[in-house]
């Protein structure tokens, strides 16, 4: 552990402290500052009077399409409509929380497993959504494989309207109350993947999905 001690000792020396390990008092001070979870200034539009309108506006800016449904049972029909409109194959790999819906009735083949590189469409749920930026937050878990949102060319994401929050800070507060420690991946998705690396020209569809469709369920 020579390198660790040397680096810490150099930092401490430069800051006028001795030794190569912070003292208990210094650690306590830092933990105290951390535990405050201080929130910085947020833009006025982060607390829009109509949260759903703000969310939709940001989605549109990002190139995310969206639809609002009355109940969960309507999801297969909406997905079928969306895929047909985009001339996309009526098949998808989806999170198991949606396996019980009537997919056959909507003419869709539902693959109850994590998506792989051959799946054209992936269906995921979400932990919550953020109106400020038109973002959905996915938390990795055995029931929520991240690859399903990443590998297919089309990502359909279900958001419960009651889980629409104002800001990223709000999502962190919810994460602490409901989950505790963050899982392996806390994954914020804001629209289809893009790049501007050639001549600073924005192109949709870099390594991730070309299309993101958000289905908001009341």
């Amino acid at each position: 552990m020579g390198a660790r001690e040397n680096i810490l000792a150099r930092i401490r020396k430069a800051q006028g402290r001795s030794g190569s390990e912070p003292t208990e008092a210094e650690m306590a001070m830092v933990r105290e500052a951390i535990a405050r979870h201080e929130v910085g200034p947020q833009p006025p539009f982060a607390h829009a009077p109509d949260r759903l309108a703000q969310f939709r506006k940001e989605c549109e800016r990002l190139g995310t399409t969206h639809a609002t449904l009355a109940s969960e049972g309507d999801i297969p029909a909406e997905v079928a409509r969306y895929l047909a409109a985009g001339r996309l194959a009526p098949a998808l790999a989806g999170w198991s929380e949606f396996a019980g819906l009537d997919w056959a009735g909507a003419g869709i083949e539902f693959r109850n497993r994590p998506a792989n590189a051959d799946d054209a469409t992936g269906l995921t749920g979400s932990f919550c959504a953020i109106a400020e930026t038109g973002t959905v937050l996915l938390l990795s878990s055995p029931a929520a494989p991240k690859v399903t949102a990443l590998l297919p060319e089309t990502h359909v994401c279900v958001v419960r309207a009651s889980r629409l929050l104002d800001t990223m800070e709000d999502s962190f507060a919810l994460l602490r109350t409901e989950v505790g420690e963050p899982p392996r991946a806390v994954f914020f998705v804001s629209g289809p993947s893009r790049t501007a690396d050639i001549e600073q020209t924005i192109v949709i569809g870099a390594h991730g999905p070309y299309r993101v469709h958000i289905v908001i369920v009341a």
Binding site: R61, F187, F188, S190, S193, G208
Partner: peptide
């Protein structure tokens, strides 16, 4: 306003 992916 935000990048497409942020992953913690």
């Amino acid at each position: 306003t935000i990048t497409n992916y942020l992953t913690l």
